[in-house]
Design a protein around this nucleic acid. Structure first.
Lengths: 159, 159
DNA sequence: GGATACTAGTCTCAATATGCAACCATCTCA
DNA sequence: TGAGATGGTTGCATATTGAGACTAGTATCC
């Protein structure tokens, strides 16, 4: 689990991997313990809480997760009584999602926890550096999720 | 798969996750196609190539992977004829690992590919920004793999 | 009033990944 | 010689995941 090596001369992806892996794995376990939910579930919970009445299809779209996975996450939130659903009057296939009281509460807990964890994670960085990092990651994030990026990858390998 | 949302006001961990996830997933598939190996296997291959005669135990230590996983990776590299082993004359439990010619070749291919992929990944960043990012990630990487980090997490949740 | 095609959402199944722990072989040291 | 450590492998049980079949409801078109 521990990386002894300096990874001084490593690749960006490698460093990213280390940080993401380590931070997320640790956080996920903590969230699970404190809220009973995994990070991904909390993310969907937040989505529902932010746009009450949202639907499966919308969540699918905005998270970019797989259909079956999304379905399972929603099932799990339903099962934990964090959200509930009501049928759409117009379309019986569709249901609208809302957070329960318990769901709202868990969401708050998760947010506080998330705040605290983020502070810990960024302890070695100054506010300025933190802003820099956020900006850089934001741009990289946009880039790697863009179709142009995928295209560039194709090209690089085709040749 | 695609993230439509801006993730403007998201957490650092989330951004990290997006970038790492996306970049690594994409790269891994490409490495597999071009070299027949996953990134992790290539990493071990590189270790072996860099310190010929290294052992299972050393690799275990420097990668920080699980014993069984490490064993399987080595098996797989052996099976693909990228490395070979010879028994230690001093200790019959130990074997020394070396890269085969094919292994060296694959390593070179992987390095070139890795170079190209990194260029693509960092396309939106200037050289300066790239250096910044690397520095920041390096420090974060050290931090999140340190025992102090884990300790801080414990503390934060205990209270 | 079908027939057809489409969408929303669920579920099953099979593949893969992963960690744990038992295990064998060998070595060390007393 | 025996107890315990070390090197390395393997079996097993479990979690994760995506693909695609499937149900149910809707829309369209004749």
């Amino acid at each position: 689990m521990l990386e002894k090596k300096t990874f001084q001369n490593e690749r960006l992806t490698y460093r990213l991997d280390i940080v993401a892996q380590e931070a997320i794995r640790a956080n996920d376990a903590i969230f699970l313990r404190e809220t009973g939910c995994r990070i991904r579930e909390l993310r969907v919970l937040r989505l529902v809480d932010d746009s009450p009445g949202t639907t499966f299809a919308e969540i699918l779209k905005s998270t970019g997760l797989e259909r079956s996975l999304t379905s399972r996450i929603i099932q799990s939130l339903l099962g934990a009584d964090l959200i509930y659903r009501e049928n759409s009057p117009e379309d019986a296939r569709v249901f609208f999602l809302q957070t329960t009281e318990k769901g709202k509460q868990v969401r708050r807990i998760a947010r506080d926890l998330s705040d605290r964890l983020e502070v810990i994670l960024t302890e070695p960085l100054s506010a300025d550096e933190m802003a820099q990092l956020n900006g850089l990651l934001l741009r990289l994030g946009r880039w790697v999720t863009s179709p142009e990026y995928k295209e560039s990858l194709q090209d690089a390998c085709a040749k």
